[in-house]
Design a protein around this nucleic acid. Structure first.
Lengths: 346, 346
DNA sequence: GCACTGGATTTGATCGTTCATATTCGCTCG
DNA sequence: CGAGCGAATATGAACGATCAAATCCAGTGC
């Protein structure tokens, strides 16, 4: 075996203390509790720290203080046939929000043959992270059960059960879809369909429930169609059935932009003009929909606010030991674009 | 300020050693150098470790051994108007590959007002990570210069300069595009255009150079069109200019699927039938193209092989101190779909 | 002049592991 | 039978910081 690269040792507190003519602890305080130093001392010490380029060793700091300044984010699986729509944008927002708070994001994923709980347990047992950020939270998510049981800090994008810590943030999907149905109703549509994926994701259920509430409220004829799987082929097939059957709906609310892509594809093939023959609305505001003609009415998720709220709640648990007493529901923002057609058309 | 949550201390080597009737070091060896133990001792010790649920504290281990088992990945910025196409798939592959090697991925991003080099320096100085994985590497990328200068381990998706460590992996973009041009030529096209983004990304330059080499080799009339920015509006505008001008090309090779989305949009609006009036080929094989009709001919990147090779090279540097003597070039895989039209058409 | 105060600074111990170096043990061999 | 040896295990000393508690010190009140 080749020789291991010699570890490079850097500047330590001791070095700085000696150079500044003060003690170790004063250096430590200069960085962690500057108010404890007399202004002149602080300035002198800071100058030496700067000059020597001293930066505390994170491992040593962690060992002693018990805090890692790292948050684990279990990466959702990303099936190419059904890519996690929000992965990019949400991760982006999370990295930014945690970075501002001085924490970093550790991406984790169960190893082959390892359960999700085991993966979490490994990090907790090795004291590698201070807390977890979860997304794509399912009803009865085993990760929530595990973390709740272990009493380990976490925050979840998606609701937890009433008996679990209410450190979650979620979008009011139902209300947003009710709004969409209202927009559709205002344009005179009576036969409306909801296109859902049937994978049992709670957010999809919320959106579907919002649809049903919306059609009830507006006295519309509404039906729900489910796609067995979320890959493009299945979506197109299911949509074709929906658009070529009898009593074709004049408006479709899709449970996600990804599903709406299928609607556009089929509508084109069937010679239906979106915005005229068929109104379409969806959910998520994916970047790719910017290429759709006519532009798609959809619901934008406040990803940055969500990420910020999640991080803030998580850090409150980690740093202050305070668990939120209730979840936080943020509104989705409907973005009205031409795919709905003009007001008062048929 | 609320009381800080008391740190939960777990099982330590000492506890295990006492329970097993051996010394600390033997426990350590059982985990890090099992061959040093007599089989029967190993078994006995392992049983105790298992029973007490002992797991070494990562911070303590890092402090002493100098190794963190963490790789930093500077997250590319993800502009919603021009989302990083590969982010999802590549990150996925990287997390998997590093996980298999027992390393985790730390996502990092410069804080506001912080340069990229400073962000790297912060991690190095605090000894938070063992190495860096870079993607979206530019020519004269300042991160490469910095890491090379610091002599810190890294691996890059994208070529480095000759005077820098050759720990890079890249795709043979040029050759793949040459192949695409060959496919186009075989279908009888003579007037061919390359649609590029002009943001100076080296991979785009490689693809453009491949195009130019291809048209030269096949004796075609080839022109390069650049889109000033990669957002959908600009792409559509530029493409419209290309498709409605005089001497409209009969085939377009796009520098990326994202650009090809614009071609589909404009072709539709202009009544051009792809595969008949216009042949289209692109690059990246993004999931979303599965919705395009007719399906898009493109080039698939071997993301898993790339990630695996990058991690393997990086770990060789970190663990064995061996820097690769040459970069690794992997082929892109052309995926032929109907957007090219039939052989010997126009 | 002296005890007292409260902030600033120092001191000693400790976090949990692995490194480097001893020590022990069981055998073989002269 | 004891020296010699290699493998297995044990011991002391870091690693580099922060915690907890002690000490110092200038200023105040009596």
């Amino acid at each position: 075996m080749p020789a291991r690269r010699p570890r490079e040792r850097g500047v330590t507190v001791e070095d700085v203390a000696r150079a500044a003519g003060v003690s170790r602890q004063t250096i430590s305080n200069a960085l962690n509790a500057p108010h404890r130093l007399r202004p002149e001392t602080l300035e002198r010490v800071s100058a030496v720290i700067e000059k020597l380029g001293y930066r505390p060793d994170q491992s040593a700091r962690s060992l002693r203080s018990g805090t890692r300044r790292i948050i684990a984010y279990p990466a959702p699986v990303d099936d190419p046939a059904n890519p996690n729509a929000l992965m990019g944008g949400f991760l982006e927002a999370v990295v930014t929000a945690s970075g501002e708070a001085g924490y970093r994001i550790l991406l984790v994923r169960p190893r082959p043959g390892q359960s999700q709980e085991q993966a979490l347990d490994e990090l907790i047992a090795a004291r590698s992270v201070d807390g977890f950020l979860l997304s794509d939270v399912l009803r009865d998510d085993p990760r929530l059960a595990y973390l709740s049981g272990a009493g380990f800090p976490f925050a979840a994008f998606g609701r937890t059960r009433p008996d679990q810590p209410q450190s979650w943030v979620d979008v009011d999907s139902a209300q947003a879809v009710i709004d969409l149905v209202g927009l559709v109703a205002a344009r005179g549509h009576r036969r409306v369909a909801f296109l859902a994926s049937s994978s049992g994701q709670p957010w999809m259920d919320d959106r579907r429930d919002g649809f049903l509430a919306g059609v009830r409220r507006h006295g519309l004829a509404g039906h729900v169609y489910s796609v067995p799987r979320d890959d493009p082929g299945e979506i197109v097939t299911a949509t074709r059935g929906l658009l070529t059957g009898r009593d074709r709906p004049t408006a479709i609310v899709a449970g996600g932009d990804w599903l709406a892509l299928g609607v556009y594809t089929v509508a084109r093939a069937e010679g239906l003009e979106i915005g005229t023959d068929l109104a379409v609305a969806a959910f998520d505001d994916l970047p790719v929909t910017a290429f759709l003609q006519p532009a798609l009415t959809t619901v934008r998720l406040p990803l940055h606010r969500i990420a910020k709220a999640l991080i803030s709640r998580l850090l409150q648990i980690i740093e202050d030991g305070v668990t939120p007493r209730a979840g936080l529901v943020l509104p989705g923002e409907p973005v009205i674009r031409p795919s709905l057609g003009p007001l008062h058309a048929p």
